[in-house]
Amino acid sequence: MTPPAGSLLSAEQLRKAYGPTLALDGAEFSIHPGEVVAVMGPSGSGKSTLLHCLAGIVTPDSGTITYNGHELSAMSDAQRSALRRSEFGFVFQFGQLVPELTCVENVALPLRLNGTPRKAAERTALSWMERLEVGDLRKKRPGEVSGGQGQRVAVARSLVTSPRVLFADEPTGALDSLNGERVMELLTEAARSTNAAVVLVTHEARVAAYSDREIVVRDGKSRDMERAV
């Protein structure tokens, strides 16, 4: 099976087991540049695992993942790490900001991992923070800002490398609806402006409503609702 034409990132027949638990059982996925796709499903359905596989964090037991014409499972761990550093961005539910670093240092981190000098990295980081309305937090540490602010900092960090794919795993899970919506608005706006594809894992319909289309994962199997209809 060939990936759908024009897709940036696609997966076919993914299987992944954690011990006796089958997390993915023939899941499929595909996303185009600039598209926001929600991955939905009840908890434990394997949606996070799908995201981890797509991002090259976890290697599936079988199946293929193609990013930009390259077979992901053929890459070495170092290559996949490099890919994540330069082409992908990540936002998680929590526990992702380094508590010792200031916010601006946190945002600059992916750039610095790519070898950008500190000053330049922090300048870019600051402009992203301003875009996400948290520019005045630059000197603060993550422990000193509210959850919503911290999540915006995390979004700024995920976007700082201008990734082509942004992976967001329950990005608003720890936020109230007002803060969550603001974060989603900023995230999708920023992603659209850079033509980044967004893989949005969520179990909340109102978050999924920010997507262009959704995929439902149930018992490790995926269902592309648009194609199904």
Partner: peptide, 16 residues
């Protein structure tokens, strides 16, 4: 269920 769900989500997208 899935068809309905898809339809609901489409409405939600428009509202959003």
């Amino acid at each position: 269920l899935d068809t309905q769900r898809s339809e609901h989500l489409r409405s939600m997208r428009i509202l959003t």
